[in-house]
Nucleic acid binder design. Structure first.
Length: 636
RNA sequence: GCUGGCGUAGCUCAACGGUAGAGCAGCUGAUUUGUAAUCAGCAGGUUGUAGGUUCAAGUCCUAUCGCCAGCUCCA
């Protein structure tokens, strides 16, 4: 065979000599500005040699694959820079992540923010030096010897874990790293990057292992994309609930109670509306709300299994006659409630809803605004049902979740199925049945699902509905979990149709998740501009001059009597100033009252954002508001 | 909890080891104003806290609390 048949992505085909390198093929095909190629669907270096008929697809730096390659190569460039500046530093792993990359190092030197600047500078020099990036393959044993000689203990450990006979190395200049690749053909292809932060990270992600130093960076195809990204991050910070919440006077945090938010009057309005919204849904979905104790003797959690698994995360206290604990979750209490009387299969399902405040002693390092707190409430409920009712209950939960998220406009949901962890309670056959039930439910739900093996709770598998905050961090809001342990541990029974006793199925579920976390995500989702039905202040009545205060006062009373949350701004200020303040406070409507409105007995509403509504009588305005709320809540 | 960074007025930020300052917010007064900032004046601080070094500490050191980024964990 003296020629190879190459087919391009656009359908064109050429015959080329065997042994041609991809980069030469690109040149002859007129393809420019490439970082890699896909041969038969597999991402490869441009220096790869062609030895058989194949299809070829070019990978531009801006493409998803291109950025992946580029960022990976940038991570290598960073590692090279770090090792040249700080001899003795060992490299470990350096993968790409969303928008960038990181590399974990073991070094006696402690990296500082100033170091990032010098590392960046060295990276730029190395990029400019246009070092050829070359791939070579080495037998496993030789690679182990090579990295062993270099003092790269972590790399040796990685290679020892690789099953293949040969491993691939990448060289650029005098620097070499173990890597699967592919990489850019030369360091000069790396044009736009920035090192962003330093953090600690455990080797292989295990806190029992040595802690490494991780340097994060972001990398892009060109300077403009980099600038755009940095700008996007800056803008996202403006939507951060930790900034917006206090600025809008919704909540605050004080060192006197770390991780335990104070909700101000305006934040409390939102808090209570969310709970009321769930209560209304509960009415429709057949839940029964209960109120249960906050503090229990620790025997409760010894029975449930939480004491052993959760001990360090609980607020415990010794009081007079023994050890008590503040509840970190509602389930054990609900089990007592369920067990306190005899239920028949005819009573099931029983759905106990509970908005109790929960306390968990989270490690100080994980506390963050409202997303990770030590004191919170959930729209929590536990469902006790027969095995036959399981699928129906799961289906109902998914329907409820979909209904809720539609109202809030949450569409970027990531659904995960989290299965049995290494440490678990209960019988394996329960777990298998439970996981099968969750899988059936998800298959019918239409969601794209990611399975996270071993990530389930210690008492059962779960489905998580995750959302991202403005900084792209993922948080679980809704969750449904099947309990494979607690009903049995608490000796729960119900009477079946044949008069015998059986252990009920138990589900844990929340739609909003923690109210605190939900408010955080909601706040960032709408950038503080809450929809009318949720806005803590829905209307602000503004006077043009003092002459209009009397009529405006009557309008305020009328609107309040009609159930609206109204503020009155009758200050001696210019209208423009008051409008500006209402706008900055993100009040949905500024209701302007001047001479014309007094004369015509109307109001002149201005929507948040600037749109003016034609003046109309107060009651008519209120009717329009009612219609707007109904539409927001999907009841129109 | 671990690693690193940061704590100055209500907020955003200044201040070489040498008298803690500005803008906004607040208060007082003037101005009576039509859809995103009227003007003037006043007040505001044990520089997170506790030690230490120094003639002198917001600045240097130690401890501690909190916050931020990430890791481990998690609604």
């Amino acid at each position: 065979m003296d020629s190879l048949h190459v087919t391009f992505a656009d359908g064109r085909a050429v015959d080329v000599r065997p042994g041609i390198r991809v980069v030469e093929l690109a040149a002859s095909a007129g393809a420019k500005n490439l970082v890699a190629a896909k041969i038969d669907g597999q991402l490869v270096d441009l220096n790869r040699v062609l030895d058989k008929d194949c299809t070829v697809e070019w990978v531009a730096p801006e493409s998803k694959d291109g950025l992946e390659v580029l960022r990976h190569s940038t991570a290598h460039l960073m590692a090279q820079a770090v090792q040249s500046l700080f001899p003795g530093t060992q490299v470990t792993i350096g993968p790409t992540i969303d928008d960038g990359f990181y590399y974990d190092f073991k070094s006696d030197h402690v990296f500082t923010p100033e170091d990032l600047e010098s590392i960046e500078k060295r990276m730029q020099e190395l990029a400019k030096a246009n070092l050829k990036v070359t791939r070579e393959e080495l037998p496993r044993a030789e690679a182990i010897e090579l990295f062993g000689k270099m003092g790269e203990a972590y790399k040796v450990e990685i290679i020892e874990g690789i099953a293949a006979d040969t491993v691939s190395l990448y060289r650029q200049g005098d620097w070499v790293d173990l890597c699967r690749g592919p990489h850019v053909p030369s360091t000069s292809a790396i044009k736009a990057f920035k090192l962003t932060s330093i953090a600690g990270a455990y080797w292989r992600g295990d806190s029992r292992n040595p802690q490494l130093q991780r340097i994060y960076g972001t990398g892009w195809a060109n300077k403009k994309d980099l600038e755009d990204y940095l700008k996007r991050i800056e803008e996202a910070k403006l939507r951060d609930h930790r900034r917006l919440g206090p600025a809008l006077d919704l909540f605050s945090l004080h060192p006197i109670a770390p991780g335990s938010p104070f909700f101000h009057p305006k934040g409390t309005i939102i808090y209570n509306i969310l709970i009321q919204y769930m209560r209304d849904l509960y009415q429709r979905y057949g839940y029964s709300e209960v109120v249960t104790p906050l503090i229990y003797k620790t025997d409760l959690w010894k029975t449930s299994g939480h004491y052993e698994a959760f001990h360090d995360d609980m607020f415990l206290m010794n009081v007079h006659d023994g050890e008590y604990g503040v509840k970190p979750m509602n389930c054990p209490g609900h089990c007592y409630l369920f067990g306190s009387r005899k239920y028949s299969y005819r009573d099931l399902p029983i759905r106990f809803a509970d908005f109790s405040r929960l306390h968990r002693f989270e490690p100080s390092g994980v506390l963050s605004g409202l997303t990770r707190v030590r004191s919170f409430a959930q729209d929590d409920a536990h469902i006790y049902c027969t095995p036959e009712q399981l699928d129906g209950e799961l289906e109902q939960f998914v329907a409820m979740t979909k209904e809720v998220y539609k109202v809030f406009g949450f569409d970027r949901i990531e659904v995960t199925l989290q299965t049995r962890p290494e440490k678990f309670l209960g019988r394996i056959e329960f777990w298998d049945a439970a996981e099968a039930g969750l899988r059936r439910c998800l298959e019918r739900s239409g969601f794209t699902v990611e399975v996270l093996p071993g990530e389930g709770a210690f008492y059962g598998p779960k489905i998580g509905f995750d959302f991202r905050d403005v900084l792209e961090r993922s948080w679980t809001l809704a969750t449904v979990q099947i309990d494979c342990a607690m009903p049995e541990r608490f000796g729960l029974k119900y009477v079946t149709s044949d008069g015998s006793e059986a252990v009920p199925m138990m589900l844990h579920r929340a739609v909003l998740g923690s109210i605190e976390r939900f408010i955080a995500i909601l706040l960032e989702h709408c950038a503080g501009a809450f929809p009318l039905w949720l806005a803590p202040v829905q209307l602000r009545v503004l006077t043009v001059t003092d002459d209009h205060k009397e009529y405006a006062g009557k309008v305020v009373e009328q609107l309040k009597a009609d159930g609206w949350r109204v503020e009155f701004d009758g200050r001696n200020e210019k209208l423009g100033f008051k409008i500006r303040e209402a706008q900055l406070a993100k009040v949905p409507y500024a209701v302007v009252i001047g001479e014309k409105e007094v004369a015509a007995a109307t109001v002149a509403p201005r929507r948040r954002g600037g749109e003016n509504v034609a003046p109309l009588p107060v009651l008519e305005f209120a009717n329009n508001l009612r219609a707007e709320v109904a539409q927001e809540m999907g009841q129109a």
